[in-house]
Structures are given as structure tokens and as C-alpha cells.
């Protein structure tokens, strides 16, 4: 796991990173770059969700809400309070983390399916508030004209610039989650997923660890949202519907949840490509997503690239 075959894996990862860094030199097509940027956003979201769902076994149907919290925080701070991107990004992540903690504390002991319903209800409440609180969020119109971000004085303007910024956030996310999950913390999350009571008798304070996994996952959702805000320059409540949360879950499951952090990323790529390919038949989008979901769960519940699953 953490030793032995580790070297080859790091070599692979290094190679992959270099390839990703070189992509913009080979690809100049704006359309493809924009798809890559959306993939990056979903990758950050799915890495966070994998910590919640894949490691800890908590089905959160409200991940899009935390994504939204990040996006709205950045949008409001930058348009109304003249925050720079750096501080707005930081504030978005912290706020998503805090709200994550606030949601996780009362729900730390409820059963899995109830947890799922609570997060679903929270996600819907978030969306309803974002739509109804017009003075603050401008309602369904959304917040527009979010200023161009600058990093150390360098403006981030083109698709390529955003690609590098996003890739940076993604790599940071990956390394952080990798570092956490390679220690006893990651193992404690998995123990909770496998058997909460047994985990308890191993000396794992399951309540605290659930709060931890959930809120860290939310933190990264906040970062992804912040990036989305400056990338799209517009945020609207419809960006954060339940469907988005479901899409993220599907991506994680199709790729494969758990230890192998590259698996959910592969899921992102597969699902994004699938939705792009089927764009011409947009009327059938949900049908296709639903069918992929059912087929993967029936035929290969560990995901296309995953090794372990919940299957007992």
C-alpha cells in the first residue's frame, strides 16, 4: 500500500503531471480546453467526495451545495467587497469547511440513509435560499461580471491560464488528500465505512472522524466553487442543483471509490466525455446518465477502475 510498489506509482504520477502540464502547448482548441477545465473542476469535487463517500461511506447528496457556497462566497466577495482572488479563494474554502462542520456535527450519529436525506434537504435549502434571497444573491439571475483573477499580479485571462490555475488547485487537492489518507486518518475513515461499531472498539472516535472526512471533502468543494466563479464569471443557483450532486456521485462510482485516488478522476473523464459525445442528443442526457449509473452498479459495483467496493 504505502511502501514497495510506491516508487513506480510516483513515477507514473510524475509522468502524468508532466503530460498534463504540456497539454496547452499541444492543444489550442478553446473548446477542448474548456472541457478540460470543467474536468479539472469536477476532479477537485470528486476527490473531495471520494473522501466522504469512497472512504467514509457517507452518501452526501448535498455536495453541490458546498460547491455553491464556495462559488457564491468568491462571487460576492470579489464583486461587492473588492476582494482579490487569493483571499476570496481562501475565504470560500474556509466557509465551505465551516458549513461542512456545522452540518456534520448534528448528523454524526444518524444512520447512513438518514444522513443521505439530510444532505439532500440541505442542498435543496441552499438552492432555494440562493434563488429567493434576491438582495444578496440576485436570485435566479445569478451574480455576473465576476472580475478577472490575478495571482501575484499575473492576470488569469485565457483558457490556458485557467487551465494552469485549475491544475495547480487539483494537484494541491490530490497531494493533500493523498497525504491524509496514507496515514491512520485515512484508515480510520475506511474502518468507519466497513464497520462503524468495530471501528469504535479500535479506539476510533467515529463521530470526530466522520465530521473530519465530511468537512475536508466540503473544503475542496468550496475551492472548486471558487475556481468556477472566476472561470465562468457568472454563478447562478442552477449551477448547484441536486443533479450536480448526483453527477459527482456517478463520476466517483463509475471511476471507482476508495484508496485509488486516480480512479474517481478516471470517472470524471469518462462521464465528461460521455456527456460531451451525447450532447447532440441532449434530450436523452438523463436517460443515458441513469442507465450508465444502473449498469455500472449492477455489473461492476467497484467502478471501472476501482479494486474494492462496498460489495460484501
Amino acid at each position: 500500500m504505502m511502501m514497495g510498489s510506491g516508487k513506480r506509482k510516483w513515477l507514473l504520477l510524475g509522468g502524468l503531471t508532466i503530460c498534463l502540464l504540456l497539454v496547452p502547448m499541444l492543444v489550442t482548441d478553446i473548446y477542448i480546453l474548456s472541457i478540460l477545465n470543467m474536468m479539472i473542476i469536477y476532479s477537485i469535487l470528486c476527490l473531495g467526495l471520494n473522501l466522504i463517500l469512497g472512504f467514509t461511506g457517507l452518501l452526501s447528496l448535498g455536495h453541490a451545495a458546498f460547491y455553491g457556497i464556495g462559488a457564491y462566497t468568491t462571487a460576492i466577495l470579489m464583486t461587492r467587497y473588492n476582494f482579490g482572488f487569493g483571499s476570496a479563494f481562501f475565504a470560500s474554502a474556509v466557509l465551505a469547511l465551516l458549513v461542512g462542520i456545522i452540518i456534520a456535527i448534528p448528523t454524526r450519529k444518524v444512520r447512513g440513509d438518514y444522513f443521505c436525506l439530510i444532505t439532500l434537504a440541505f442542498g435543496e435549502i441552499f438552492r432555494l435560499v440562493a434563488t429567493a434571497w434576491i438582495e444578496f444573491t440576485r436570485g435566479a439571475m445569478g451574480i455576473v461580471r465576476i472580475p478577472m483573477p490575478k495571482i501575484f499580479g499575473i492576470p488569469i485571462a485565457t483558457e490556458t491560464d485557467f487551465y494552469y490555475l485549475g491544475l495547480g488547485i487539483l494537484i494541491f487537492t490530490y497531494l493533500t488528500i493523498k497525504a491524509i489518507t496514507d496515514t491512520r486518518y485515512g484508515r480510520a475513515f475506511i474502518a468507519i465505512r466497513e464497520d462503524e461499531l468495530a471501528a469504535d472498539t479500535m479506539g476510533i472516535n467515529t463521530a470526530i472522524y466522520k465530521i473530519m472526512a465530511f468537512s475536508i471533502g466540503c473544503l475542496f468543494a468550496g475551492m472548486a466553487g471558487s475556481f468556477l466563479a472566476v472561470y465562468q464569471t457568472v454563478v447562478t443557483p442552477s449551477n448547484f442543483r441536486l443533479e450536480e450532486s448526483c453527477l459527482m456521485i456517478i463520476m466517483v462510482i463509475v471511476g471507482g471509490m476508495g484508496r485509488n485516488l486516480l480512479a474517481p478522476l478516471a470517472g470524471v473523464v469518462v462521464m465528461t466525455v460521455a456527456t460531451e459525445v451525447f450532447r447532440s442528443v441532449a434530450d436523452y442526457r438523463m436517460l443515458i446518465i441513469g442507465l450508465i449509473m444502473i449498469l455500472v452498479l449492477l455489473l461492476r459495483p467497484q467502478g471501472i477502475f476501482g479494486s474494492s467496493s462496498f460489495k460484501s
Binding site: M1, T183, R184, R187, A188, I190, A191, E194, D195, L197, A198, A199, M202, G203, I204, S308, S309, F310, K311, S312
Partner: peptide, 21 residues
Amino acid sequence: LRVFSNISVLENVLIGAHCRI
């Protein structure tokens, strides 16, 4: 029996050592 069935033997025991790490 309540072993953690879907993970490796090694990880099972590492989880057992949780509070001593």
C-alpha cells in the same frame, strides 16, 4: 466475526493499531 472485509489484512491490523499510532 467483524473483520473489515473489503480491505487488506495488513490494513485491518493497522486499523487495530490506530490508537497507538
